[in-house]
């Protein structure tokens, strides 16, 4: 699905806990999420800490959209 969106010229920040899948399929901008069951969060954290984790992960995913890539590339939060 993501590749078809890229095909029309819209860059996609692909957030996943299992980057091996989009890397093999050929998605361009891949962002490492936290876990399959909790992609952008951490249920073990207190609510406020989890919110700031999600803010950091989301900012990291957004940043990939401004990056020039030539091949499937995996990014992580700073």
């Amino acid at each position: 699905m993501a590749k078809e969106i890229e095909r029309v010229g819209i860059p996609v920040a692909f957030c996943t806990a299992i980057p091996a899948v989009p890397l093999s399929v050929g998605v361009s901008r891949i962002f490492q999420g936290k876990a399959v069951t909790c992609l952008l969060g951490d249920a073990s954290l207190p609510a406020e800490a989890e919110r700031s984790l999600r803010a950091r992960l989301t900012a990291g995913a957004l940043a990939t959209l401004t990056r020039e890539v030539n091949e499937p590339t995996l990014f992580r939060a700073d």
Partner: peptide
């Protein structure tokens, strides 16, 4: 089917003037 869904959604994004997408997959 994923390609078809992607094409359909891409067409909507384009006509809505969307410039980038966040895609979350589990």
């Amino acid at each position: 089917r994923a390609s078809q869904f992607g094409r359909e959604i891409a067409a909507e994004l384009r006509s809505a003037g969307v410039e980038a997408a966040i895609f979350t997959a589990t």
